[in-house]
Amino acid sequence: MKRIRVIGIGMGDPGHLTRDAVEALATVDVFLVADKGEAKADLVRARQRICAELIPWSHRYRVIEVVDPERGPDRERDSAAYGRGVRDWHAARVDAYAEVLATLQPHEQTVGFLVWGDPAFYDSTIRIVDALRPRFGVAVDVLPGISAPQLLAARHGIPLNRIGAPIHITTGRRLLEEYRPELGDVVVMLDGHLQCAGLAETHPDLRLYWGAQLGTPDEALVSGRLAEVIDEVRRLRAEIRARDGWVMDTYLLRPA
Rank of each mutant, 00 (worst) to 15 (best):
A212W: 03
M248A: 09
P159H: 08
H168S: 14
A21F: 05
A148P: 04
R155P: 08
T125K: 07
A165K: 14
R207M: 03
D244R: 14
D249Q: 07
I9Y: 02
Y97E: 03
E219G: 07
M1T: 14
L194C: 00
S124L: 01
L176M: 00
Y209G: 04
S223P: 02
G83Q: 13
I146D: 01
P56D: 11
Y251R: 00
G164Y: 11
R62A: 10
Q195A: 12
P149N: 15
M189T: 06
T18K: 06
L206G: 01
L132F: 06
A21R: 04
G12W: 02
P144G: 01
T18E: 04
N161S: 10
L25D: 02
D95E: 15
A102E: 07
V30F: 07
D35H: 13
L54E: 01
G12V: 03
E23K: 15
L253P: 03
L17G: 04
T27D: 01
A92L: 08
D231N: 00
A120D: 04
A238T: 12
L190M: 15
E23Y: 13
V66T: 14
D249F: 03
L143R: 07
D244M: 14
S147L: 12
A148R: 02
Y82F: 15
V247I: 13
Q150S: 08
D141W: 08
W210G: 01
T18D: 06
Q105F: 13
R234K: 14
D141P: 06
T27H: 00
I9P: 01
D191K: 07
L190S: 12
T18L: 06
R3E: 14
R234C: 11
R237N: 05
A98I: 06
M189S: 06
A220K: 06
V28G: 04
D95K: 09
A197C: 15
T103M: 14
Q48D: 08
A91F: 07
A46Q: 11
A21W: 02
E201G: 00
S147C: 11
A34Q: 12
F136P: 04
D20S: 00
A39H: 13
M189W: 05
I158K: 02
P181N: 12
V44P: 01
A80E: 12
D29W: 08
H156W: 11
V33F: 03
P159A: 13
R62F: 11
L151T: 00
A165L: 14
V233S: 02
G83M: 10
L101Q: 07
T125L: 09
I64H: 05
R60H: 08
E232M: 06
R241N: 12
I126A: 12
P217S: 10
V140R: 09
E201Q: 05
V188I: 12
W116A: 03
